[in-house]
Design a protein around this nucleic acid. Sequence first.
DNA 1: GCGTTTTTGAGGTACGCCCCTCATTTTGTA
DNA 2: TACAAAATGAGGGGCGTACCTCAAAAACGC
Lengths: 359, 359
Amino acid sequence: MRPTVNDIAREAGVSLATVDRVLNARPGVRDKTIRAVNDAIVKLGYVRDLTAANLARSRNYRMAVVLPDTESQFVQSLADALTDAGSIAAAARMDLRLHRFPAEDPHALAALLTGLPGRGYAGVALMAPETPILRDAIRSLRAKGLPVVALVSDLPNTGRDHFIGTDNRAAGRTAGVLMGRFLGPTPAQVLVLGQSLLARDMIERRRGFDEVMLRDFPQLDVLPSLETHGSGQTLRHVVAERLANAPGVRGIYAMGDGHRALTQVIDEMGLSGKLVVICHELTPHVRQALEGGEITAVITQNLGHLARSTLRVLRAKADNLPLDAGQEQIRIEIVLRENLPPIPDSAALSAAEPTDTAA
Amino acid sequence: MRPTVNDIAREAGVSLATVDRVLNARPGVRDKTIRAVNDAIVKLGYVRDLTAANLARSRNYRMAVVLPDTESQFVQSLADALTDAGSIAAAARMDLRLHRFPAEDPHALAALLTGLPGRGYAGVALMAPETPILRDAIRSLRAKGLPVVALVSDLPNTGRDHFIGTDNRAAGRTAGVLMGRFLGPTPAQVLVLGQSLLARDMIERRRGFDEVMLRDFPQLDVLPSLETHGSGQTLRHVVAERLANAPGVRGIYAMGDGHRALTQVIDEMGLSGKLVVICHELTPHVRQALEGGEITAVITQNLGHLARSTLRVLRAKADNLPLDAGQEQIRIEIVLRENLPPIPDSAALSAAEPTDTAA
DNA sequence: GCGTTTTTGAGGTACGCCCCTCATTTTGTA
DNA sequence: TACAAAATGAGGGGCGTACCTCAAAAACGC
């Protein structure tokens, strides 16, 4: 049997009330007594039963997740992953609420954020580009005691409590090595695409990519980035034009989204499988293109993991508890056709339930 | 506020006792009443508070983890990861016990396993090669109601409840593509090492590797596997001899362990960075060799994830609950020097704790 | 309508912990 | 030594659920 608070009290020769005071860091206990209790805790190997503690506290965690209203598959997949994770975490008194803001409107975002406190929220997770007005909004949230967590793209100068996502520079470097090694020693040109060169993650990816290319693969000529501004139309034109005019192009690094348009151009020009194409984020389209051969490799992050990590971090921050750094690290994953993770069947129930609410 | 059993009782116009009977599928309730209660549950959106339920049940989960007593870094890292995960899960009434068995003694293993029931265990996770006697032991465990989970290497013909690990065939394929693409179009020879060609995982890796090599990289000549039988000595000799006599060898695929010896040979022959070396499992040695350039790429699985997954699966099986298939999938990770995950500092406490036991 | 069986209600205790109050003891200080 | 202040003990109510008992009510068969 696991030891309980009562066992500690007996072992330490103090009352339950004192044990409670020590465990919950309440004032009015002599150092000597504190030590006695802690000794008993160590001796008995006591571990507080968190489920019972939370039950007693009747703590619940309403969390806001704020995402841009982009219709991109990535954001959509992220939202899905968060919703999934949230519905499971509901059993642990989590209550996740998704909010969307107009992608290009920092003021609307700020208004949304400042409206959050007072509505019972215990924390906020946020995916957004950094702007001065956002910085202020985040500061004000934190001043009101709400932890703020940056999602996918970091907000380093806002005082956010935590960043959940990959190191984009390292991701860019990884794309670089793959590109370099896959292209081999023959000189070639590499096209780089990104919807906007202002976004922090794009800049960092590009920096990491260039770093490796310059250092390790001098035979490769990396062309200046092409901006697509999120438009499939633009991307198609720009890429088609480049591929037609620069016959030395043997690799494409797509830093942003617009994968569908890219795949189309490649197909139309009959170049599927003949180029090394590396992009980010394993969305359904990208998965298909990997299988089809239009895309060679994908640098991605596990959105399920990211979503669950978000919930754990928000919760830990709300309770002011430490994090398990190893668990919260979002890895940079490399996906090729050969290690494409199978799509888990959502109906993978491995056991029946006595009643349909028990799970 | 989340609805509770009391709310259901009120809504359905029945007593608490009846709600309890319905929720826990106890006998003696009319169909009509059951329906009324279920309607109330749906209407209020009731979700049973699992933590409170488990508390009331005073359910605890003593789980056995059985590993070979190999001194390999991989098994050691796995044991560490499991211990870590176990100590965290202790807060959720988990009680993980590690057992080791003599690696080459199936009888000792079987004896260990058959001794487990009756000692309060609720489940077993096991990493071991499949033998007939093991099959029987597992069947007998399951007959006694203990779920059995295979770790790292699957035990498909034993009726185990679940397998936690990667698809070794796909891992071999992944190693194959990397080898092929990294070596480029120039003809070359590839050395394959494995400690024993009888182990299921080795066979599957080799099969996946060959599959890709034959199909996609005909210019590469994959030499027959060399068996090292887990001896660093043997490995050193064999590899040195081959490298000296076969100047066309430009790639090494190390399917098993013995990475330390391999790194040494490569260093001694001044071949660091000149060969494409691909191996499995990111142990501390391998990490070092990746940074040093002796090893080019590693196919690995996240042991922290694997350990946590093990606990979740054991628990779900013990409670006969469904699994989140997506979460429990162990991915095949590709690690290069550029995306080497940083070692999380174990003292990465992001917040102070009132007492050192509260987490 | 009777007795019998089945269904339902009422209530209690427990799980391990949190959080509060009030009385009592101990400690430190003048 | 007396006194205030600090530390400790004792105890109760609660979180949401599980599981038990016993009595009361309803449904059933004849």
